[in-house]
């Protein structure tokens, strides 16, 4: 029965380390050998909230090496607050790795990474892989204030160039991170980005202006995380290679796109194929 041959993706992991580089930004290291081995850059996990009282939380896989993975989260509500309180030795159930990651080959050999806030978490593995494959990588990283720009040095250590921006001007460019790249003009072959939706929309506009293509990793509330509930959709061109099969719609329907599941067909899409 083919359906049962898929390896189970539910894992009991154990917290191996925890740090809080800025208030409400927490990085949790986990002993999770199977996920560490299998994770592709840009994939995510669903973290079962320890109390079991809330819907699981989707988090991008930040680091993956040896038997360890890490997750970066910002405390924004009760679910992330619970996760942020985890300590070394605590158990955490994760489902994953899930979703399709970045299409690294299609990004080419000279890539601009654009991160907004903890969107950074989904870009370290792509950066490491691209650099290992001989690409040039430059990180454009924006956050609300200097302290919230965490871990840029990990990208530098991997060999990436780094430019910073803050909303309050406390470090780097005073303003949006996309403005940094816009000012430089077309200095990269492609863009890969992760961050809040308004930033990703701006990335899409910027890419069009610069005449390059951008892969954007969308952040959204997932319920199931595996494509079952159709709760996390985004409008996508029917011609996209990622568009789910869907028949011509009923008479009276004026929308000419399809809905793609961010958790299943994504979370990474080509920005010029999104209709948002």
């Amino acid at each position: 029965m083919p359906v049962l041959e898929t390896p189970p993706l539910v894992h009991e992991t154990v917290v191996s380390d925890r740090r809080e580089p800025f208030s409400d930004i927490v990085i949790i290291g986990l002993y999770a050998p199977k996920i560490a081995r299998e994770a592709r850059p840009g994939q995510f996990v669903m973290a079962v909230t320890p109390s079991g009282e809330r819907v699981a939380t989707a988090l991008g896989i930040y680091e993956a090496a040896g038997d360890r993975i890490s997750l970066m989260l910002v405390v924004v509500g009760p679910r992330t607050r619970e996760l942020a309180l985890l300590e070394r030795g605590d158990r955490l159930v994760l489902a994953g790795p899930l979703g399709n990651g970045f299409q690294l080959q299609a990004l080419g050999k000279n890539v601009a990474l654009i991160a907004g806030g903890v969107g950074l978490a989904s870009l370290l593995l792509p950066a490491q892989r691209l650099l290992a494959d001989g690409a040039r990588v430059h990180l454009y990283y924006g956050a609300r204030t200097a302290g919230a720009l965490v871990d840029a040095e990990l990208f530098e250590a991997a060999g990436a160039g780094v430019s910073l921006a803050t909303d309050d001007g406390s470090r780097g460019h005073h303003g949006y991170v996309t403005e940094l790249l816009a000012r430089e003009g077309r200095t990269h072959e492609t863009i890969a980005a992760c961050g809040p939706s308004p930033m990703l929309r701006a990335v899409g506009t910027l890419a069009r202006t610069l005449g390059v293509r951008a892969q954007v990793s969308l952040e959204e509330t997932f319920a199931c995380g595996v494509g079952a509930c159709w709760g996390c959709v985004v409008p996508l061109e029917r011609s996209s290679a990622q568009a789910p099969a869907f028949p011509p719609v009923a008479p009276g329907e004026t929308r000419d796109y399809v809905h793609a599941r961010i958790c299943k067909e994504g979370p990474v899409f080509w920005s010029d194929e999104l209709r948002w």
């Binding site: 959204e220 509330t221 159709w230 996390c232 011509p248 719609v249 009923a250 929308r255």
Partner: peptide
């Protein structure tokens, strides 16, 4: 009976003790 594209996003909102 006929295909339906469904509602526009957002389609989900987590709320206290529910969805």
């Amino acid at each position: 009976r006929l295909p339906r594209l469904g509602n526009d996003a957002p389609r989900l909102v987590p709320v206290a003790s529910g969805l």
